[in-house]
Amino acid sequence: MIEVVISAAVLASMYGLVAIGISFTWASIGMLNLAQGFIFTAGGYAAWVFAEFAISAGISGPLLSVGVLTFGMLGSAVAGLAVGSIAFLPLQDRDNFRTRSLIATLAISLIGTQVWLIFFGPQNKPLPPVFGEGRIEFGNAGISYGQLGTIIVASVMLGLVILWMRSSRRGLQMRAMMMNPLGAAVVGVSVRTTGMRVLAISGALTGLSSVLLAQIFFVSPTSGVQPLTVGLIISLAGGLGSIPGTVIAAGLVGLAEAVTARYLQQSLVPFVLFGIVVLILIFRPRGLGGLLEDVRE
């Protein structure tokens, strides 16, 4: 039972980070970033390159872990900026921006996979364990360092981002832009620079999740597809643009996946997830927290 909860929390924290990136981008600049899978893999490869370099240079221990996490986030942030400069800046004030940017990000993710294939080959790349190896046992259950670290790092990072959004000048600027782009322009907030900043931040969150997921799976050119689809579904169920909604939805989806995998069958996981999300959307078409859309209109 406890193990199910733990694995649910691990899944929720990893997918939740990707989902929040998608949700955040949509709410502030009105762009559905489906290149999030590409950004995800970019972080993984950046971390891998760093790890290769660091291990050959003899770096190990906490320094290696911090380095891997940092480079993962940096790599994804840079990829986010690249996506923004291709799919956001040129299209931003043209008509039909939403559909066009959606197609543009899809095209980027098509190109991205091939670029990774060309540069890194189709093999799976492992990342060194960031949180060390070992388990804490309590009662008849236990939690590995990796799981514990994933949960803690993801929650701390998420907390920091939320805190920053709530209290700082840039955060105020982003929230203002989410609610009223015209009003934001009038007080001197540039949609373009703020949009790029948003893309970098959601990229960094995705990169973090990429490094965390690579603790369980590997980094490969197509490893971004699964997190992208699950992240999409979570951000939909949570209501695009609502951070609390997304967190709740991530918890629900993580729990559903863990419970199904444990008590039913692994092959049923996709259908259970899909069914839950469809049910949520049928009863609340704007997702769990999608009140923002209404306010915007």
């Binding site: 105020l172 600027q173 009038v186 007080v187």
Partner: peptide
């Protein structure tokens, strides 16, 4: 601006502060 170009989800304090953004 004409009408209400305020930020509906922010508090009054935050709305005022956003004017001092620049």
């Amino acid at each position: 601006p004409q009408g209400d170009a305020i930020f509906p989800g922010l508090s009054v304090r935050e709305n005022l502060d956003s004017g001092a953004y620049s």
